[in-house]
């Protein structure tokens, strides 16, 4: 299935391109998300989700397919697995475009394939849920941008080991409590799969930064 989402960031497009591709920086904006490590072209992260008494951890990894800094289009292939709920495969195309001089519109096209229980429950609500969670992400991003200057600190080349994964030290996230998000019951049961999709999006957006 194909999902289309967009949100607006209140910084100019050149800055957005840098910020949104700095995964390590923006990952905390994603409710429940944590980036764990990076190895070569592969980024690995998790999203913790809680629906009432049920907690799940979705493990995601993403690889970079193409990056067009000129047109500001990134294409990412991603895979998320929760042994209970099933797998998610996604190809995400993120396009950044100027929205006036001071803002950026981020358009996401996600071609999502789901399996297992994820796929079986209520795909009908997924787009609404995606929009909802993405709104939270965008709001958090705004807060982040207001609190910090939008300059990007790039890790020195020596930070990257010659081979093997490089662990990323970040705080354990609070699980995203889906029960606190006001939604219809149908939307609630679709949420886990949306979260997987979104963590993948986040991972992927960050990916670009690393490959520059």
């Amino acid at each position: 299935m194909e999902m289309m989402n967009s949100f607006v960031v209140s910084i100019p497009v050149d800055e957005s391109w840098l910020v949104l591709t700095d995964l390590e920086r923006i990952a905390p904006c994603m409710p429940g998300a944590k980036l764990n490590e990076v190895e070569g072209n592969e980024y690995r992260g998790v999203v913790k989700v809680k629906v009432g008494p049920i907690a799940a951890t979705y493990e995601g990894k993403a690889t970079f397919v193409s990056l067009d800094a000129e047109d500001r289009v990134a294409v990412i292939k991603a895979f998320g697995r929760d042994l209970r709920q099933g797998n998610a495969d996604a190809v995400i195309t993120a396009t950044l475009s100027p929205n006036g001089d001071s803002e950026t519109t981020v358009d996401l096209v996600t071609d999502l394939s789901l399996s297992g229980k994820l796929a079986s429950f209520g795909k009908s609500g997924i787009e609404d849920v995606a929009a909802n969670v993405l709104r939270q992400f965008a709001d958090n991003l705004e807060v982040l941008l207001a609190a910090e200057p939008s300059e990007v600190v790039r890790p020195a080349d020596s930070d990257q080991p010659a081979d093997g994964p490089r662990p990323i030290d970040s705080a354990e996230p609070e699980p995203m409590d889906l029960a606190s998000v006001a939604m219809t019951p149908v939307l609630k049961r679709a949420l886990p799969l949306v979260v997987v999709a979104l963590v993948v999006v986040v991972v992927c957006l960050g990916l670009k930064r690393r490959r520059r």
Binding site: M1, S113, L114, S115, G116, K117, A119, S120, F121, G122, K123
Partner: peptide
């Protein structure tokens, strides 16, 4: 079934 071949009428809710 969805376009990937998953049964989406997988409970009596659907």
């Amino acid at each position: 079934y969805d376009e990937d071949g998953n049964l989406i009428t997988s409970s009596f809710m659907d």
